[in-house]
Design a protein around this nucleic acid. Structure first.
Lengths: 225, 225, 225, 225
DNA sequence: AATGAATGAGAGTTCATTCAT
DNA sequence: TATGAATGAACTCTCATTCAT
């Protein structure tokens, strides 16, 4: 049986059509065998790499399959469409990021170590496929289904940032803790991303300066006017 | 089982292409009549908006032309290809950003005002088409020709950041001024970009916290280990 | 007054649309002033050159106008469409070719000179814009109107070839004079065209051999079996 | 007032384009399954026919695919661009032509038969798609890669003509054998092509006269002055 | 389960032609 | 008359996705 599109017939908007895939559960079939799991693994790895290297638009499912060493047919056996593939990559990445935040809020470790953990974590997360984070967060489109995942992540991320800020701040810092936390997190992300672009992720001075920035931001006496 | 797509019924999005055109001079022909200049203006405006809204891949030349209210032929009369169009948008944007930096380094104005000018400038620049900066800087591809423009901008930007840092820092701040400047600039850009994404660019608390971040970063006593 | 095309209505083929221009009198307006005549002249010259250099498809009306140093608007002032322009070039060229034939059939001059005149004439005609003849005769499309012109030329050309063959043959040559004439003419054209392609049009050995070919063809004793 | 075209609504003819694609390897991928080979076959056949019928410019890849009964995507699966497609057709055709020359130089067969083989071969080669030879040799553009193929063919063709002339000439014929051979070959090609245009390829008188032309050219006593 | 040939909507781009100035 | 900006149908080519093997 064939899938027909009636959409544009119904209410004629001009050209701008696209193939935004239907809300399907992200994974077409649960991997039963070890072989399947391995295939999925290699596809996701390949997808993450290519996504990071080329960006969403230049990432083709065919290229992902080829790089992964599987046939395009196999890819579609596990992921119903390009978006679902990206979604799977996203989910992984988000988990990593949240793990970093959790570690940086763990009051069992000393404060200095927590701050370092935060910065180091962000650096590490971005290291494998430098641009992937940005692509996943901003460049790659989402459908209704991924939107939910996204919002969930965003919320947890926010909470994590808040916690990080509150747990680690010093002095009578910002009035508006929530916003300050958001600003700080985004600032760190921006700096890390920029460093990734310039190939400075591994540079100790960069790390030192970033930690200094975080530290001073957490330590500041009063919000400027 | 098969299914229909309703997504695009609601707000159809364009196809996500990739084709990177071969390098050509940025502008196809110089406008001789006043009418031309107006056409170019409206095309650039439309391009900037759509680029910011949809990203490079989802920006179609046809959509740009349509939004601008001109024919696709007119667009190609002035810009030999999609890349050249983006390049023209880029050039404008870069000029604006550099102007902000210059203003923030002008020692004729008091320090507090300079810092505010920096933050406000960054906010303003990103306000018209929130995501455009990121798209122009990172997402949209470049050819050999644009690469040069890019490097030139990057250099001037760097110098501007350095100057801003050196002119405005307080105390014995960072050892590694150059890196610190880079980190600070990227951090501000990250925060601004994030705020744009969340629609907080106009929010006073955001502005206040960002200024605080910059201030504390410039004032810090010693680089952390 | 404007008009529709019905020609192809008669035998409906599928998609393959095009802009085959309507049967308008070839020239839009008769040149009244010397200036007009000069404009037309320069346009035709430019068209012939470009046609010869690039072939029909790569010949754009804009390029013709630009090379001629007039505006595209002016071109369309005198020629209602691309085809009409080519048609005008064709007419000229055809006249030249027929003149050559006439000269080669003039019994007032000695036979050897007539043969040389034929070969030299063909060479000369092809010299200005080497490939133009072929383009005009075969590559460029014709509409109903040009078809007639074409047929007229073809007929006169044929008659000229016949006359040339009959006037100049020696011995009891071919039984089938008409076909022999046609073959000979086409052969000469083929050789000349090939030489043009190879840049040998000016080469004396080429001329010598071509004359020899014509001579021997006219002199042969009997048609082979 | 406006001139509307209704022609193409009904059956239109193709647009005449120009765009010359950048050099790419001729075949995109090697066929692994039998099905592929059949697809390629049918595409090439269709391409040769349409090329011969309409010329390079009016040959659209869509028309080729449609005529071949495959999708446009399939065409591009095997040929990276229009030029590569033509190149493949060319290669085939060239092989055929060279085979004819080889047969006409084979001293194992009697002279009269060799000459007939030459003429008949040229006729046969041009018979399937009358104008294809000319289009392939002259009209269709080439890129750097095809240029090489072309030169190779041209050289072999030249050598073949030389051999044909030398093996088959009679008496003390031409001084300048090389040029004479070239002239003769081009003459035959011209005559054959002309006959193809007029639908005379199958006509016995045409064949007879052409053979007579070749014979007399090979037999002539002295080069004329 | 896996493969890869086939599909076709849709994107970028050209150029003959029109018409306001 | 002359100009050249504007138009848009038609063309080449891509890539997400399907399905026969």
């Amino acid at each position: 049986m064939k899938c027909e599109y009636f959409a544009h017939i119904i209410h004629g908007e001009p050209r701008l059509t696209t193939r935004i895939p239907k809300p399907t559960s992200t994974m077409r079939k649960a991997p039963r065998q070890a072989r399947s799991r391995a295939t999925i693994e290699v596809i996701l790895e390949s997808a993450a790499r290519i996504l990071g290297e080329r960006g969403w638009a230049a990432t083709t499912t065919n290229a992902v399959a080829e790089t992964a060493g599987v046939s395009i047919g196999s890819l579609y056996q596990y992921f119903p469409n390009k978006l679902a593939l990206v979604e799977a990559v996203r989910r992984r990445h988000f988990d990593e990021v949240l793990a970093v935040l959790r570690a940086s809020t763990d009051t069992a470790t000393p404060r200095a170590r927590r701050i370092a953990a935060f910065v180091d974590g962000m650096i590490t997360v971005h290291r494998r496929f430098p641009a992937a984070h940005r692509v996943l967060l901003e460049e790659a489109p989402r459908d209704a289904a991924s939107e939910a995942t996204h919002r969930r992540f965003e919320m947890e991320y926010r909470k994590g940032c808040d916690a990080f800020f509150i747990v680690n701040r010093r002095g009578n810092a910002a009035v508006d803790a929530e916003i300050a936390a958001q600003v700080l997190a985004a600032a760190v992300a921006g700096a890390v991303h920029d460093a990734a672009r310039l190939g400075l992720l591994a540079s100790p001075p960069f790390r030192r300066e970033l930690i200094a920035l975080v530290e001073s931001s957490l330590t500041r006496r009063r919000a400027a006017g």
